[in-house]
Write a protein that binds this DNA or RNA. Sequence first.
DNA 1: GTGGCTGCAAACATTTTGCATAACT
DNA 2: AGTTATGCAAAATGTTTGCAGCCAC
Lengths: 142, 142
Amino acid sequence: MGELERVLREHGHRVTRPRRAVWSVLREAQAHLTVEQIAASLNDAGEDVDVASVYRTLSLLEELDLARMSRLGDTDASRWEIAHPDEHFHLVCEQCGDVDHHVGSLVAQIREHLAGDHGFEATEVELVVSGRCARCARRRAG
Amino acid sequence: MGELERVLREHGHRVTRPRRAVWSVLREAQAHLTVEQIAASLNDAGEDVDVASVYRTLSLLEELDLARMSRLGDTDASRWEIAHPDEHFHLVCEQCGDVDHHVGSLVAQIREHLAGDHGFEATEVELVVSGRCARCARRRAG
DNA sequence: GTGGCTGCAAACATTTTGCATAACT
DNA sequence: AGTTATGCAAAATGTTTGCAGCCAC
């Protein structure tokens, strides 16, 4: 049994076609998807799921720590991704539009720094860095 | 002549009552304000400014690097603040709802780390940390 | 069978836009 | 006087909700 089914059942929720479909789209995408993009993917896959259900499913997945929402870049639409077990941060390239995930010690370092200097117990560290990725920097600088 | 007037004129924009009023509200507030809150403040101050003008003014101020927008916490409304010359980050307390600014070396450190390890030229570092502030942590832990 | 879930449509919240008028330079 | 910015209202966008019927359990 997949992770989705297990977690849903554990919490007394039902395993339905729309939930499987949304989960599948999130799993297969590497990027952060807007609801619009998720709906398009569902369509491509021949799955007929209402946006309202997409929203409801995403909220549920978030509640169950299976998905994560963020508002990257300058868009006003939320973007969704599978909840990574590892802490990571986002590098948004202003030139090519790419969004990279990076797992590293950085987030842990930030957490420690805050606990030490500010007495702040961090539960969630959201680090979004905009700029130019190595590839674009190379191309432009020579 | 104030900073607002100077920058507006420098860029060929007019100095108008709504622009002064919005600027004044932002200057006097320490917090990050939603457009709704800005409108309420304007009302309190006896200034009659349409929301559309508030939005247009805020966009202009952002373009001129006089104001900054961010989407803190879980709200879906943008929040605005005077553009700080210093780099800073946000500590959002999940318990008391407080949003603190912190200026420190942390952002510079992140920038260096990324340039070194990832070859990523950061232009903007947005660090939002949720958790429990020192005050709330003390109260609860003893 | 029954209660939770879905689809549909309508409501809601936030932000943007078109246009006639007002006001800054 | 010229033209940019404003106010108003309407539209666009993103998200939530009420409800009748459907489907997983």
